[in-house]
Design a protein around this nucleic acid. Structure first.
Length: 886
DNA sequence: ATCCTCCCCTAC
DNA sequence: TAAGGTAGGGGAGGAT
């Protein structure tokens, strides 16, 4: 070791550590600010590549071949056999080079001269991070001010002091490559499942993880909203006005003759639309959302054999077709891996396209395609990164916007839902077209993203209508159109018909619904099974008996990772299973469930498949193995899960080196909080019956139509309010079970994933406000300050002031006086006239709550009187009553 | 018949 | 480089 080391840490051996990261960031800054992006850092190495032996190292023969191809030479470092130096320099001097000569001094001085490198310390940073603790170079002292005057010779000496403490056995293989930029070098150090933080890092980057989590959240969200059902749909009031301003002629839609109207709404290329908000300059261009930056050539990994792997995929698909009875010559097997270039090729990227714009689709690009294939179709394809926060925010806004009007929503995913809007449209007396126009505009305005809607008599029709409507359109598939419309629909476009089914059907000679209609039910069932056959029989005729499902019950909880799984030992595998078990446990706690059946899913490299996968750290061509155990007692304990899963794993006896994917699934779920759940179950069962009956004759949502009621002048007193009080319950649309854990369940869920603090004001939905307000009226009344100045009484006061006044009034302990009551009533009437129903609702709830607390006869009378007046005013203005929960 | 386990398929 | 998750429906085939 160096003497200088002891004297002065700045001059001695540089220990690698956090320093490295800091340095890299600093350098990145310098490099990017210098705008010398063309000059890759590794230019300083002038084409030298160093491979340090590790498990992915190329064999000596491979390396020799490689270098021969590039006209370079191959050399094994004598002192430490696990260091290999290979160079594609034409210079044969390399042959006997020692580590001292790996870097020629003049390269470094050149780099310094061109301001790319500050000192020798910086240079060292570009070694492989894996080898940091083990590889120590002596750092050279350098006077930065004078660096340009340093002679070449002054660099040589210290480099001779290179010292290697021990062999670099477990390093990965690349130190420097002449084709990659600084950033790539930094990323050489890719995490695999062996890293302790792998799961969280992976999940944070996984689009599919986000899609499934977000989708589940919105299902829960709708469940919760419906259970609360504590809303007035104030938005209804403005809807017709907005429609009028849009379309003078359709203010009334008198000929409403449809039994049932289902709306399907779907954002247009969701990820792209959201992403374009941050990249408006790319609007109108072919754009794709992907991790790949686009087409840069990659570093080669040894052992990759794409053609072998791709051929396996093709064979597998062919096998399936043969099984389905297709002559293999009949159908060309097309797969996702078609048109992918080889590794390192311009079209070789295997990054998946999560979503692409319609301009890109026009070129034949579609979602899920690999970047390489897409670039072949459209070389000018632009890429934008994921914006997971943005998706959450837009999805939230979408749902809240629709939920203003109705809660008869079936959440499909974060960007898609079905809405049963028969009652809504009937009630509002607006046509589907007008409704669609207005809400699409509203969504567009709030989110900046376009969406499309389809209407039809059932979910299938609505869905197909949406497809027809896209992009950025709407379509009403009316009963008279259905027959013709269905005839030309491609079977692939039917929901539930994927690649396998459609290929099977194609082998039977059918590509369109019209053609499939010639098959009998029995023959369809024979080929596809009873249920699937029957479903398809209906579907190709445009029928769909499945009602919307508003309430979903979770049946399984699982977590799996099929990316980056590379184990050496069983212990590493078990360690990862432990992390996965913890993940499953936390999800089960979130959903408040326990489960009785645990399934371990393994993806194992197929025997014929290359060890190194075509996709970087992908799972490659695999066999999938599932194995499950049933427990006597339901659990959500990660340690029990781990124990079972390890035992399953041992039974399967798979070499950990061959594992490419691992998943844990828990089924046969039971709800936690048994007592609460049971009582709730009974109540909701009861209520769901009531609800059913009501829904037929009471289509109204939360605004209640007065059956027969002559208009009375404002403020005309009536004896008793029939609206409020416990006896009012028949007007309930659907019940609210007693408050229980459900609420906190959803809170946890939302907190963890959905909660969207980033929602800006303009994206805030009234529903969300209301939601909160119901819980915390005081706080929110404070928040919502209106600063209208009106002539007298309460009208000139802010929300806050009114609230203070009311509170003081309640707290005063004095009996209420008529004039005060009148004042509050006139304040409320003003709100009604100004369509300020949201706030009125909050205010009245506050009012009721306080009076219930006081629980005194006089105050109760006041309450009744106030409510009666309010309802009268509501009737006069809107011909509707305000709906309240008990 | 009905259930169970494993597997496949589909959707986003 | 790349981030190939997750839930539900249903079928095949064996156990009961």
């Amino acid at each position: 070791m160096s003497r200088r080391d002891e004297k002065n840490s700045d001059n001695g051996f540089e220990a690698w550590g956090g320093y490295m990261q800091a340095k890299i960031s600093k350098l990145e800054e310098q490099f990017s600010s210098k705008a010398s992006k063309e000059n890759h850092v590794s230019d300083i190495f002038k084409g030298i590549s160093i491979f340090v032996n590790g498990y992915t190292v190329p064999t000596a023969d491979e390396l020799k071949d490689l270098m021969a191809q590039h006209g370079g030479v191959y050399h094994t470092y004598q002192r430490h056999e696990d260091i290999v130096i290979a160079s594609n320099l034409p210079d044969t001097k390399v042959k006997n080079m020692s580590l001292t000569n790996i870097v020629k001094p003049e390269w470094i001085t050149e780099s310094i001269a061109s301001n790319q490198l500050l000192d020798y310390k910086d240079f060292l940073l570009y070694s492989n991070k894996h080898s940091q603790p083990k590889l120590k170079f002596q750092k050279m002292s350098i006077d930065k001010k004078n660096k340009k005057e340093l002679s070449t010779d002054s660099w040589v000496e210290p480099i001779n002091n290179v010292d290697i403490e021990r062999p670099l056995l477990d390093s990965s293989y690349v130190i420097v490559d002449s084709t990659n930029s600084l950033k790539d070098i930094k990323n050489t150090d890719t995490k695999t499942a062996v890293d302790p933080n792998f799961i969280s890092e992976f999940y944070s980057n996984s689009r599919l993880h986000h899609i499934s989590q977000l989708g589940a959240c919105f299902k829960q969200y709708i469940n919760d909203l419906r259970e609360k059902s504590n809303f007035i749909f104030a938005a209804h009031i403005n809807l017709r006005d907005r429609i009028k301003s849009y379309n003078q002629h359709s203010s009334f839609f008198m000929n409403f003759e449809y039994n049932k109207i289902i709306m399907h709404i779907d954002m247009d290329c969701f990820f792209v639309s959201v992403g374009l908000r941050k990249h408006p300059e790319l609007k109108g261009k072919p754009v794709a959302v992907t991790h790949s930056k686009g087409g840069l050539s990659q570093r080669k990994r040894s052992g990759v054999n794409r053609s072998v792997e791709f051929e396996l995929y093709r064979q597998k698909q062919a096998g399936k077709l043969i099984k389905a009875g297709v002559a293999i010559n009949d159908i060309e097997i097309s797969t996702r891996i078609d048109n992918i270039g080889d590794e390192g090729n311009k079209f070789g990227s295997m990054s998946e396209i999560a979503s692409c714009s319609y301009e890109a689709r026009a070129k034949g690009i579609c979602n899920g395609m690999f970047m390489g294939a897409a670039l072949r179709l459209c070389p000018e394809l632009q890429t934008i990164p994921y914006d997971f926060e943005g998706y959450k925010e837009v999805a939230y806004t979408l749902y809240n916007t629709i939920a203003q009007y109705t809660l008869d929503i079936e959440a499909v995913s974060c960007d898609e839902m079905y809405v049963h809007c028969t009652d809504l449209l009937k009630n509002l007396n607006v046509s589907p077209e007008d409704f669609a126009t207005v809400i699409r505009e509203e969504i567009r305005e709030k989110t900046g993203c376009p969406c499309s809607t389809g209407f039809g008599g059932n979910r299938l029709q609505a869905r197909l209508a949406t497809k027809q409507a896209k992009p950025n359109g709407q379509f009403f598939l009316t009963a008279n159109l259905i027959e013709d419309f269905m005839f030309d629909i491609n079977l692939k476009d039917l929901p539930g018909v994927g690649r396998q089914t459609s290929q099977k059907l194609e082998s039977l000679g059918h590509q369109t619904c019209g053609s499939l209609q010639s098959l009998t039910l029995a023959s369809l069932q024979q080929h596809l099974g009873n249920k699937t056959g029957a479903q398809l029989f209906d579907q190709c005729r445009g029928r769909d008996r499945n009602p919307l499902t508003y309430h979903t019950v979770r049946k399984s909880v699982s977590a799996e990772v099929n990316y980056g799984i590379r184990f050496e030992t069983n212990d590493q595998c078990f360690h990862f299973l432990n992390q996965l078990s913890v993940e499953v446990q936390s999800r089960m706690q979130q959903f408040k469930v326990k489960g009785k059946c645990i399934t371990l899913k393994l993806m194992v490299r197929a025997e014929e498949a290359p060890v190194e996968t075509a996709k970087f750290l992908g799972h490659g061509f695999c066999d999938v193995i599932n194995k499950s155990v049933s427990l006597l007692e339901a659990t959500n304990d990660s340690q029990i899960i781990l124990q079972e899963v390890i035992s399953l794993c041992k039974k399967l006896n798979i070499d950990p080196k061959e594992m490419r994917g691992i998943g844990i699934q828990v089924t046969k779920l039971e709800q936690l909080n048994d007592k609460l759940q049971k009582s709730k179950g009974a109540i909701s069962k009861f209520l769901s019956n009531v609800t059913k009956d009501e829904r037929q004759d009471k289509p109204n949502l939360c605004m209640k139509n007065e059956p027969v009621s002559p208009k009375r002048p404002l403020l005309s007193p009536r004896k008793k309010s029939p609206i409020l009080g416990p006896s009012r319950s028949p007007s309930k649309r659907r019940g609210r079970p007693p408050k229980n854990s459900k609420l906190s369940t959803s809170k946890n869920l939302m907190d963890k994933f959905l909660q969207c603090p980033a929602i800006k004001n303009e994206f805030k939905s009234p529903i969300k406000n209301k939601f909160k307000d119901v819980e915390e009226p005081k706080k929110n009344i404070e928040n919502i300050e209106t600063k209208r100045i009106v002539k007298s009484g309460l009208l000139g006061l802010s929300w806050k002031q009114v609230r203070e006044l009311l509170r003081a009034w309640f707290d005063s302990g004095q009996p209420p006086k008529q004039c005060d009551v009148n004042m509050i009533i006139s304040y409320m009437e003003d709100m009604i006239c100004n369509k300020n129903i949201d706030k009125l609702y909050i205010l009245i709830n506050f009012f009721r709550r306080r009076i219930q607390e006081i629980n005194n006869e006089i105050w109760n009378e006041v309450l009744n009187y106030v409510l009666e007046q309010v309802q009268s005013a509501m009737m006069a203005v809107y011909n509707k009553r305000l709906y309240f929960e008990d």
